[in-house]
Amino acid sequence: MEEKRKNKRLDIDVKVEIERIDEDNITTVKYMEVDVVNISKTGLAFRVPDVKFEVGACFDAKIQIWTKETIDTVFKVVRVNELDNGVNEYGCIFVGMTDTDALKIEIYQLFNDAQ
């Protein structure tokens, strides 16, 4: 299968809390933690059991990275895969992140590749 991603995805252990943003700015999911599969400076993939989001759903997220710093970002769901046992995997792109925070992810990637 051909790789379509522009940026390498990293398999890392990070903590992510998400909060859904609706069109009317109504929050339907108060902060919930999700299981991050991988992350890059342009997006992330996560898994969550027994919760269904549609493509196009947007979330405000707090991502605690390996340095214990927290990155505030907004991402949008672009792909949904239904896995076994009611678990859904979501592919997302960042639609709101500072250049500084994107650089933190890129620096970790460079550090990780050098090992």
Rank of each mutant, 00 (worst) to 15 (best):
Y90K: 03
Y108C: 13
C58M: 10
I63F: 01
K76C: 07
I71Y: 02
R79C: 13
E17W: 00
G86R: 01
I71W: 02
I105E: 04
E17R: 01
T27H: 11
V29H: 07
V55S: 06
E2I: 14
E19I: 00
T100P: 12
W66N: 03
R5I: 04
A102V: 08
I39S: 03
K30I: 05
T67F: 10
I18D: 01
T42W: 05
L44S: 04
A61W: 00
Y31R: 11
T28N: 12
E2L: 14
T27L: 09
W66V: 04
F111M: 15
N85S: 13
F53C: 01
F59N: 00
T70R: 03
K68T: 13
V78S: 06
I107C: 13
E3N: 10
M97K: 03
N81V: 02
D13T: 13
V77M: 10
E19T: 00
E106F: 08
G43R: 00
M32E: 08
V78A: 05
L103I: 15
R9Y: 05
I39W: 01
R20W: 07
D60K: 03
D60F: 03
T100D: 15
M97Y: 05
E3M: 09
N85G: 10
A114V: 12
N81C: 05
K104S: 09
I39C: 04
K76L: 08
F53N: 01
I65W: 03
I93V: 14
E3C: 05
K76Y: 10
N88L: 02
K104T: 07
I26D: 09
I105G: 02
V51S: 14
E19P: 01
R47H: 09
V29C: 07
S40Q: 10
A57G: 09
V14K: 01
T98P: 06
Y31S: 09
D11P: 07
V78N: 08
K8C: 12
I18W: 00
N25Y: 15
